[in-house]
Amino acid sequence: MSDTRAGFEFTRALRTEADKIVARYPEGRRASAVLPVLDIVQRRNGGWVTTEMVDAVAGYLDMAPIRVYEVATFYTMINLEPVGETVVEVCTTTPCWLRGCDGIVRACEEALGIGLGDTGADGKFTLREVECLGACVNAPVVRINDDYYEDLDPDRARAVLAAVSRGASPPPGPQTSRAASAPASGPTTLRASAGSS
């Protein structure tokens, strides 16, 4: 990492947006806003933050730069290196793994032509594995930018990626006929099976 401190300052628009976030927290607790502020900075910078931006966030929130950097490296949602326009994250933690995430990883790699952790030469896609996305009930799960695509199998994963590649936005959520996280094998409670409300 370089030691240059020049280069990034909060624009007026960014500051206005960040001020709104800081206002959610009590007086003297500006540091609480570190994650959402990092997030808006990242969104305005094509999906990643530079060292200079970390410094700027630290300055804006009255934090030591190192404390912001700790946060930025802890959370996988904050990228410290450039990423593709679309970030595809495959969950490979135990529940997804039990439900076949290995096949999803292969399908993604084949569909995008890149391996885990890589960004395509055209800068369109970044593919990586992540730890639990917290949607185990709909495992296996892939996160594409801000949306979760759930109940995947390799074919459904390919279909979703094909649609995203075309520039479409396939509806997020379960990619089967299942509604949200309703029981996959149909209703299991008496009231539901009796058809009453």
Partner: peptide, 21 residues
């Protein structure tokens, strides 16, 4: 002097300084 911190998480956690100085 807030110059040391813990970066990354889990098995990848490292203790160090923000910029090497």
């Amino acid at each position: 002097v807030e110059e040391l911190g813990a970066f990354g998480r889990g098995e990848h956690m490292e203790v160090g300084n923000y910029v090497e100085r």
